[in-house]
Write a protein that binds this DNA or RNA. Structure first.
Lengths: 89, 89, 89, 89
DNA sequence: ATTGCGGTTTTTGCCC
DNA sequence: GGGCAAAAACCGCAAT
């Protein structure tokens, strides 16, 4: 089924339409907020640039800090893989 | 210049350090919020799917509503032209 | 079991090593080829753009042609329903 | 402009249509090849699995080998960034 | 100014 | 069906 059915013909599907519209509007509101946050972040980068920092490098730092835990685990896991692959237990 | 210079040797560059750290932390906080919002949006799509909507088409709708009507119609028209040329439909 | 065992201790697991290395290298070679093809495809899109076509709509067309006609029509129909419900067009 | 114009009405736009069709078909051929390569790669993973290797781990190894040079450079660059940000020349 | 390009994010398809 | 890897769209920058 593609969409909820509305068997009350008197409503001219107003109920289903409203349900859809509500969902879409909730999403749009959140996406706006999300976009606002994205803009704020961009502002901070510009502010940083304005006081002499290199935005690209800042992004690199942020990315690196984010990646550290995940990456360390991945490296560890892969190390285990190598050992296993080479038959060292 | 890559970073602000701090000519007061007594500070041992603590000021520059703090400035950088502060910027990075502000960004990280905002990115976290942004990620949370993204997760919330995904939840709404799942909720929509749970009541019978096609999430992929929903995304398409949200995209269409973001566009200017004129642009949207132009896109749609172009697509129709190409479809006709290739015998689609 | 994670990897094939090599019980011939004299080989110092050279066989397992080589087997792994060989597999990885085969994969890497194929992935390179695959990437080359991807670049070629991009070139064609650029060429199309250069003679006046809208690359994004072209991609859409290619996607549509890949689908089963029945599926394509179903998608299109669903989208129309949603558009109508939200008063688009 | 969205598509090349064909002012020769006698041709019923056959020329423009053919041009489009040709482009699309070239793309489709290449995408098929690309897909074939993707399938071949998948086969190798399955073959590896069949002789006891863990495909997921193999993928990790391949990814790691691909990332190594880029990642090392990124780390180096970021190190420089840190130094610069802290005013150490 | 315009357009190609690198990188970031979003979407899609896949395997478990 | 939910998470993960590949593809596509989007954006700002740079270079011409």
């Amino acid at each position: 089924m593609t969409a909820p059915k509305d068997h009350n013909s008197r409503s001219r599907n107003g109920n289903a339409d409203d349900r859809l519209r509500l969902l879409v509007e909730r999403i749009e509101r959140m996406e706006e907020e999300k976009k606002g946050l994205g803009d704020d972040i961009k502002d901070v980068y510009n502010e940083a640039k304005a006081v002499g920092y290199d935005a690209k490098m800042l992004r690199q730092i942020v990315r690196l800090r984010k990646m550290q835990p995940a990456d360390r685990r991945e490296m560890e896991a892969t190390l285990e893989v190598y050992k296993a692959a080479l038959g060292i237990d």
